[in-house]
Every structure is written in structure tokens, then in C-alpha cells.
């Protein structure tokens, strides 16, 4: 192995250690005991202090949070409702729209494509306050359905679908189907939909991840209703109830949320992301060059 190659491998492993060790330490934190953490015991990355008993104690604290407990599970359910609902809506809208922009000629097609691209690359938080004003005007603050509808607007999904039909469905196929007397909607339903599985999975995956990790939109629309919070803003409430950061609030609670409990709640709150990632992995590798994940 020559020197240049050695330097390259060492650099890459060095950088990797900065990503890996904090994450191992953080996951280990979810398995540790709060007193031991405070006492600085547990050894390297705390790996010496992990046990399942600690997890079951921590879970009883996390799950006990709320006026009658069980609030965390409720937040997980809400996250599933808005993330899955938003992703389904995104697929229903993105697949036909991407197809139409890729394979049909109509006025304003290019303008709509440009609008889609621009909204896709803009950070979606800039619209949250206007969206709050809109939802407030129809008296639906604190309800889940407006969040689902807003999450259904997913221009990156339309772009993915557009690229999919641009690259995997030849224009001649559409032309031939027209000669067979099929109308445009039937061509879409009978020819485009059956070959859209790859695009559907990609749209579903990226939409689900974006919805699950979305913080600002649920913060603005759902904060006022504790029962209807999603897990992302729920975690913020748990942090705010921790004796580490807010002793006054924490003193009034039956449960004690120290770092192991917060880490456990965070790790549980990320498990659905891991699940969809594993489920979509095969398709992600194939679609890797398609484009960026929106920030």
C-alpha cells in the first residue's frame, strides 16, 4: 500500500469515527441508568452501563408522561397518521402530475415544471407562518387533517415522478396507445401506472421521511393541542419537562426524564425511519442519481 492510499484510508476512517462514536454513545445512553450517567460511570461511551432493566425503567417514565400517561404513544400514532397520510396524498398527486409533465403537451406545462422545481429547492419552513394564518382562518388549528393535506403537497415527489416517466417510458408508447384509441387518462391508468412502482416507492420514502422529521409545521399548527402533537414536537416537550433543563416544571411531574429517558424516546421516535429505510433500500440504490433530498 503506497503512502497516498494509506493517507486516504486513514482520513476516511478518521472522519467516520466522528460520525459513528457519538451515535453509538447516544444509543447506549438509551440503555443506561440516570444516576450512573450523572456519576460519570459506565466506562467508554457508557457501554459498560447498559442493561435492559434500565430500558424498561426509562420506558415507564417516558410512557408515564402526560395527564394520564400514554401521551408518547399517542404522539407516535399522530406521527404515523400525518406521515403516512401525507405520503399517500403525495403519491396520488405526484404520479399523474409527473407523468403529464413528462409525456403530454399542454399550455403552461413548462411554467408548471419550473414552479415545481423552484418550490422543491426552497426550504419549506418559509411558508409555515402563511400556512398557519390560512389554517387559522378556517379554524382548524390543533387538528391533524390540515397537516396531512399540507404534507401532501410534495413537489420533490412530482420531480421524481417526472424524471421516472421521462427516462423509463418512451414517448412512442404513448403515441401507439393513442392510435389504439385509448384516451389520455386510460393511457395513464393502463400503461403508466403499472410501470410506476419504482417512482411510487421513492416518493413514498422521501415524503414519509420529510413528514416524520418535520418540526416547524407541526409546531405552528399542533402545539396548542397536546393530544394531537407529533413525536418531533413531543420530544421538545419532553426536553422542556426534564429536570436537567427545567427543574421547576420537572418538580411537578411524577416521571423523571433524564438523559437516558430522552435518548430512549428519541431512539424509539426514529425507529419508523429505520423501518422505511430498510424497506425502500433496494429502490433507493437504483434511484440514487435522481437527485437530492430536500433540506
Amino acid at each position: 500500500m503506497n503512502l497516498g492510499r494509506l493517507a486516504r484510508v486513514v482520513t476516511m476512517l478518521f472522519v467516520a469515527s466522528f460520525f459513528v462514536f457519538p451515535i453509538i454513545g447516544f444509543i447506549a445512553m438509551a440503555f443506561r441508568d440516570a444516576d450512573q450517567v450523572a456519576a460519570g460511570q459506565g466506562g467508554w461511551l457508557g457501554l459498560g452501563g447498559v442493561s435492559l432493566d434500565n430500558v424498561s425503567h426509562s420506558w415507564s417514565q417516558v410512557n408515564g408522561f402526560g395527564p394520564s400517561g400514554g401521551l408518547f404513544v399517542q404522539w407516535m400514532q399522530n406521527s404515523i397518521i400525518v406521515s403516512v397520510g401525507g405520503a399517500l396524498l403525495a403519491i396520488l398527486a405526484a404520479i399523474p402530475a409527473g407523468y403529464a409533465m413528462a409525456r403530454l403537451r399542454f399550455r403552461f406545462r413548462r411554467a408548471l415544471l419550473m414552479i415545481t422545481l423552484i418550490t422543491m429547492v426552497m426550504p419549506n419552513t418559509v411558508l409555515v407562518i402563511p400556512l398557519f394564518l390560512e389554517v387559522n382562518a378556517v379554524n382548524a388549528i390543533g387538528e391533524l387533517w390540515p397537516v396531512v393535506v399540507i404534507m401532501g403537497f410534495f413537489p420533490f415527489g412530482v420531480y421524481l415522478s417526472y424524471i421516472h416517466f421521462m427516462t423509463s417510458m418512451p414517448g412512442e408508447l404513448v403515441e401507439a396507445a393513442r392510435l389504439d384509441g385509448l384516451n389520455e387518462v386510460s393511457i395513464f391508468a393502463r400503461i403508466a401506472v403499472p410501470i410506476s412502482k419504482q417512482a411510487c416507492v421513492l416518493v413514498a420514502f422521501f415524503a414519509f421521511v420529510a413528514n416524520w422529521t418535520n418540526f416547524f409545521l407541526p409546531l405552528a399548527l399542533l402545539s396548542s393541542n397536546q393530544q394531537n402533537k407529533t413525536v418531533s414536537i413531543g420530544l421538545q416537550e419532553l426536553i422542556g419537562a426534564s429536570p436537567l433543563f427545567n427543574p421547576t416544571v420537572a418538580a411537578g411531574l411524577d416521571v423523571k426524564l433524564y438523559m437516558p429517558q430522552l435518548a430512549l424516546a428519541t431512539v424509539i421516535g426514529m425507529l419508523p425511519l429505520l423501518a422505511v429505510f430498510l424497506g425502500a433500500q433496494r429502490y433507493l440504490i437504483r434511484g440514487e442519481t435522481v437527485g437530492a433530498v430536500k433540506g
Partner: peptide, 9 residues
């Protein structure tokens, strides 16, 4: 057809 397919989006 195009506008019909675009409508939900």
C-alpha cells in the same frame, strides 16, 4: 387529459 391528471397536484 393533461389537466385532469394535473388536477390533484
Amino acid at each position: 387529459g393533461a389537466w385532469t391528471l394535473m388536477a390533484p397536484y
